[in-house]
């Protein structure tokens, strides 16, 4: 967001399961699907950690009118895309929280308050958090979400946060962990591992 490059957006609504944030216009790299983010809760005592699973751009009558116009001008398109205040909403699934420097792989005790700043997790924070794979069951158990694609995207983000020589090993370990969790559902495991292989190729 303009003025504060470390801010993705601010919370508009939240629950212990996750939070929804809004921003005016997206930067090329934030927010993106599968991104790790954090948000203060309990008056700064804890950070709720989330992964972005949906980015939603609202429309309205004027946007639809311009979209349907025969030849919208570049300037009016730029106005609609970068200037006009149509909030872009993104939704994050809570995958853990941080309290006094320790990470916990369960739902947070309290959701963040409305308008709390949402920031991307730094590479070292992602590495520390994903050194353990206990966040994976929280993602896989989420209902009505594209959990396989989300998990694969998260694992890719977690791998690129690591030094190049550690990335493949991290993805292999994560893949084994997921295979155990999905062993009861072989078609799904097969599909997930294919997505992960694709992510692996693009990450390494």
């Amino acid at each position: 967001m303009a003025g504060d490059p470390t801010l993705i957006g601010r919370v508009t609504r939240s629950s212990t399961l996750g939070f929804v944030g809004a921003l005016k216009s997206p930067e090329p790299e934030i927010p993106v699907f599968g991104m790790f983010c954090k948000c203060e809760a309990q008056r700064g005592k804890s950070d709720v950690l989330g992964v972005i699973y949906n980015i939603n751009i609202e429309d309205d009558d004027l946007t639809r009118q311009i979209a349907a116009a025969e030849r919208p001008t570049e300037e009016e398109l730029a106005d609609q895309q970068y200037v006009r205040q149509i909030p872009i909403e993104f939704e994050a699934l809570a995958v853990g929280y941080r309290l006094t420097e320790a990470y916990f792989y369960t739902l947070p005790p309290q959701p963040p308050l409305a308008l709390a700043p949402i920031r991307p997790m730094k590479s070292d924070e992602i590495v520390q958090f994903t050194n353990q794979f206990e966040f994976i069951p929280l993602i896989l158990s989420a209902s009505n979400l594209p959990v396989d694609a989300l998990l694969a995207a998260c694992l890719r983000k977690a791998s690129v946060a690591r030094p190049r020589q550690e990335r493949q090993n991290f993805l292999l370990e994560a893949g084994r962990y997921c295979a155990k969790l999905l062993s009861h559902d072989l078609p799904r495991m097969d599909s997930f591992l294919r997505i992960l292989c694709f992510e692996e190729k693009s990450a390494i």
Partner: peptide, 12 residues
């Protein structure tokens, strides 16, 4: 303020 022909977004 809109500057047509510039390709730039308007200033509001």
């Amino acid at each position: 303020s809109l500057r047509y022909g510039s390709g730039a977004p308007p200033e509001i």
